[in-house]
Design a protein around this nucleic acid. Structure first.
Length: 891
DNA sequence: AGACTCACG
DNA sequence: ACGTACGTGAGTCTC
């Protein structure tokens, strides 16, 4: 009794389908510029079917060339097919590489199609073999039998539909071997053979039920009533027989492989890892490293071990100067991102000279005063993965962290903003000679995330991380040099990391009682608003559910549907605003949403973040945004309400951390437009700034031809402001029309007028897009790069998006650079002058400080001076500032 | 986990 | 014709 499962895959068909299953092809591109979408999708499909069917034998068959015995029979066979796109063709050779790594046999045969190879092997299988055929082409269903099941991809490539003789019977009412008769009658437009004129699937099936086969039909033609159809059948006899012949899959192709060649044993992990690295398939990498780790923890594969010797220190007194080198790699492990609160799983450092890794429990390490002194010693240089994170962690043990030699995370981020995911990625990026597992593979994920039971596995993982960090240093510095960001790294990002560490450690004091009182008030109001809305709707429902809300508004109350989302009706604020006049419930919902947002995100959302010191310590992430801005998380302190008074009051809860101290705020006025004026060198815009004009009014005067000497109306100014914003974002007439709620034509006229009046800006927009196309990236004044692989995409939307990004990124990025410089310089100056005041928040174009009230006068001088002097542009930078008892008062 | 909505610059 | 403003993070619902 055989228990063989033979899997025969139509490689050509599935490769092609894989390509079209991922349409966003520009996202799938490796560093070498190779598209990888088809390979990615094919790999996923392959994984799925191998897992599902657990085959003992596998073959992937490919078509050899366009010319086959079928084209000899009929030279239009498969003619007129669209040529495969080049993005697909370039991936073709790699399918075989992938299959080799999987240890899977692949085969093609001159003059024959993949179908024929599959048909021949399926025929060779024994009756007690289980044969699984996988293809995107329904023609193969003719091979179905009691032991052969044909799986056809439904949509994409992972959704398979099984065709057994029974299914075929139910679907078409015919047997598998009648499928060729059906194809003979109906032809095939994609393979380009004709069949009988005006006979399709329905008629073919009807005729087959009557006659059983094509041959029988022609033998018994007199059973058919005279009709146009009968005429066609008679006239197209030759075509019908030829079409049937073409549809017939061979079961005796002269293949030179035998069933025994198809035996599948296992994947070649090393080859697959290489392949995934080259293709940058990180998710598969993670998966396979997870798999192989599980395997090797049993087989004790040498390759899994670090080169560094692991020294697990157990007691505080084992820390001596012997184990604390002058030059080290330092890393502490946490299982969650928020390092302000994360439990420290271990502290580890390595001496690259002796190739030793020291690993300790945190409590034991931080009890050692010699260890703490070493951390605080600026002469003891250290390579970090994320200095700021380590500095914050050290500060939790009242310890300074000095000796910042290198921050691998920051350097990697600068080289390419997309790469800085986790430490293991850096190994792939730089092709280092050590393999670091992904954290997920070692620690697991979700609720099961934990340090492995086997301490050895954990220590190996740490040792490899440290080794990788050391090995990464030189290559990443070289890369930084190649991309001309060495200065940016040393002069801006490294000093900023220190600055941010301090700022995060200090935190911001938040008055919990203030938030709680406001929360109580708001909660009762929300109740009232709910009741009001239920009354107007005539029923209770979940107002927070866009789905339920959509049903109420657009079905029950029959309001017009102006915009839809992927999944249903849009109930976004801009849509609701257009429906205000139709029903009073709309206003009530808008009001409710506003308050509900304040309540959930801020009034209820912030208090859990307040620590015992009465402060919130957010993380200002330095290595995330594509433009060079910071981002703030846990919680986000860069989006505290301000635009609407009701929300703005929340800022009253943000207060100085000490008595007799005040808050101090300073913000750049129009920094992005000033940057634009500088880099575009547009005379008119520069003049407006140099003359100290209100930029939106000045723009309005030009664009709308208003008199020079009269004040600009509020409405003109509002429109000009919207155009200015649009310009910064990489304008489109559609976007502007949406924003201003005006016809697209008018928006286009505005933009045309704008470019006439500011020709330097028009020129900048053109040139920056050309530059992006030429180089593949754009850069800020300080050489920060953003790569734009989509800039030459064939898809209009994808390309347009990249073009707008090309216009916006140098502007947003340069502004980000400038405030970073300002922060560094300001902190230096505060220190130099011996002031107690300190920066506690950054919100993209503003800095918030706190300090003794006696220092406010000095800050009013110093802060604008430093911020305005951060960059020397061809126009002045302008900073407004204020002080007050809380954040709310800084206006 | 992904979609939607909305807070900020 | 295509159908979108640039950059973020978080709460909520739904599957």
């Amino acid at each position: 009794m055989s228990n063989r499962t033979i899997m025969l895959i139509d490689g050509s068909s599935l490769a092609f389908r894989s390509f079209y299953s991922i349409l966003d092809i520009e996202r799938f591109k490796n560093k070498a510029g190779l598209h990888t979408n088809a390979l990615f999708s094919f790999n996923r499909m392959l994984d799925n079917v191998l897992q599902e069917f657990e085959p003992s034998h596998v073959l992937v068959a490919f078509d050899k060339s366009d010319v086959t015995f079928r084209t000899e029979k009929y030279d239009h066979y498969k003619a007129g097919r669209q040529k495969a796109p080049s993005e697909f063709k370039e991936q073709m050779p790699y399918f075989r590489v992938l299959l080799d790594a999987y240890g899977i046999k692949h085969y093609d045969l001159i003059n024959y199609e993949a179908d024929d190879i599959i048909g021949t092997l399926a025929f060779q299988a024994d009756a007690d073999d289980k044969v699984v055929i996988i293809s995107g082409d329904k023609d193969l269903t003719q091979l179905a039998s009691d032991h052969v099941t044909v799986y056809i991809t439904r949509k994409g490539v992972s959704d398979l539909e099984a065709y057994t003789p029974l299914v075929i019977k139910e679907k078409w009412g015919i047997t598998p071997n009648q499928i060729v008769d059906m194809k003979g009658m109906m032809g095939d437009s994609s393979d380009n053979y004709p069949g009988i004129t005006r006979i399709g699937e329905k008629t073919a099936v009807k005729l087959l039920k009557q006659f059983g086969s094509l041959e029988n039909m022609y033998d018994r033609l007199d059973e058919l009533k005279a009709s146009k159809m009968k005429e066609n059948i008679i006239n197209d006899k030759e075509e019908a027989y030829m079409s049937k012949d073409l549809a017939q899959i061979l079961q005796d192709a002269p293949i030179e492989i035998a069933m025994d060649d198809l035996v599948w044993k296992e994947k070649n992990i090393e080859a697959l890892v290489d392949f995934y690295r080259h293709m940058e398939f990180n998710s598969f990498l993670k998966q396979i490293q997870g798999d192989s780790l599980n395997v090797t923890s049993q087989t004790e594969d040498d390759k899994q071990f670090a080169d560094y010797e692991i020294v697990a220190l157990q007691q505080t007194d084992e820390i001596t100067s012997e184990v604390l080198p002058d030059y080290a790699v330092y890393y502490s492990e946490t299982l969650v991102d928020n390092y302000h609160i994360a439990e420290i799983q271990a502290v580890a450092w390595a001496d690259p000279l002796t190739e030793k890794v020291y690993i300790m429990e945190k409590d034991i390490a931080f009890q050692s005063s010699i260890f703490k002194k070493w951390l605080a010693n600026p002469q003891a240089l250290k390579i970090f993965y994320d200095y700021k994170r380590e500095a914050v962690i050290a500060s939790r043990y009242d310890c300074q962290l000095e000796g910042l030699d290198m921050d691998i995370l920051i350097a990697t981020y600068l080289v390419d903003t997309h790469n800085a995911q986790e430490l293991a990625d850096i190994v792939n990026l730089l092709d280092l000679s050590v393999s670091v597992s992904y954290d997920e593979a070692v620690y697991g994920k979700g609720v099961k995330k934990k340090v492995p039971e086997e301490l050895g596995v954990f220590h190996q993982h740490l040792a490899k991380k440290l080794q990788a960090l050391y090995l990464a240093k030189e290559p990443i510095l070289l890369k930084l040099d190649e991309v001309v960001m060495t200065d940016l790294y040393y002069e801006m990002e490294l000093p900023l990391a220190k600055c941010l560490a301090q700022l995060e450690i200090i935190g911001v004091k938040v008055n919990q009682t203030t938030l709680e009182e406001k929360n109580d008030q708001v909660l009762s109001r929300i109740k009232e608003m709910e009741d009001e809305i239920y009354k107007m709707a005539g029923e209770k429902f979940n107002i927070n559910s866009p789905k339920q809300l959509g049903v109420i508004l657009f079905e029950k109350l029959e309001l017009p549907v102006l915009k839809k989302t992927k999944t249903g009706y849009s109930t976004a604020a801009d849509v609701l605003e257009k429906l205000l006049a139709k029903h009073p419930i709309v206003q009530a919902i808008l009001d409710y949403r506003q308050i509900a947002k304040l309540q959930s995100t801020y009034l209820a959302g912030l208090p859990p973040y307040i620590k015992e010191d009465g402060k919130i310590h957010s993380r200002f992430v330095q290595t995330l945004t594509q433009t060079g801005r910071l981002s703030s998380t846990d919680p986000n302190l860069q989006n505290i309400p301000i635009r609407i008074e009701e929300g703005r009051l929340i800022r009253q809860a943000f207060v100085p951390s000490q008595e007799d101290w005040l808050m101090f705020g300073a913000d750049y006025s129009q920094i992005e437009l000033r940057v634009l004026a500088h880099i575009s060198n547009d005379e008119h815009m520069k003049a407006a700034f140099i003359n100290g004009e209100d930029i939106h009014s000045a723009t309005a005067k030009r664009v709308f031809h208003l008199p020079e000497d009269q004040p600009v109306s509020a409405d003109y100014r509002r429109q000009a402001k919207a155009v200015n914003f649009g310009i910064v974002y990489g304008i489109s007439d559609y976007g502007l029309s949406q924003n201003l709620n005006i016809p697209r034509k008018e928006a286009k006229a505005f933009i045309d007028r704008y470019f006439e009046e500011f020709p330097g800006i028009a020129q900048y927009m053109e040139e920056i897009v050309a530059e992006a196309k030429e180089n593949g990236y754009v850069k800020t004044l300080f050489n920060r790069r953003r790569y734009l692989p989509d800039i030459s995409a064939s898809n209009f939307n994808i390309r347009s998006f990249a073009e707008r990004t090309a216009m916006n990124s140098p502007i947003q990025g340069t502004a980000a650079d400038i405030i970073k410089i300002a922060m560094i310089n300001l902190q230096k100056n505060l220190e130099k002058e011996g002031l107690e005041s300190r920066i506690i928040l950054q919100v993209h174009d503003e800095l918030i400080l706190e300090g003794p009230k006696e220092e406010m006068e000095r800050l009013t001088q110093l802060v604008p001076e430093v911020m305005e002097g951060a960059a020397q542009l061809s126009i002045p930078l302008k900073v407004d500032c204020a002080s007050g008892k809380n954040w709310y008062e800084l206006k």
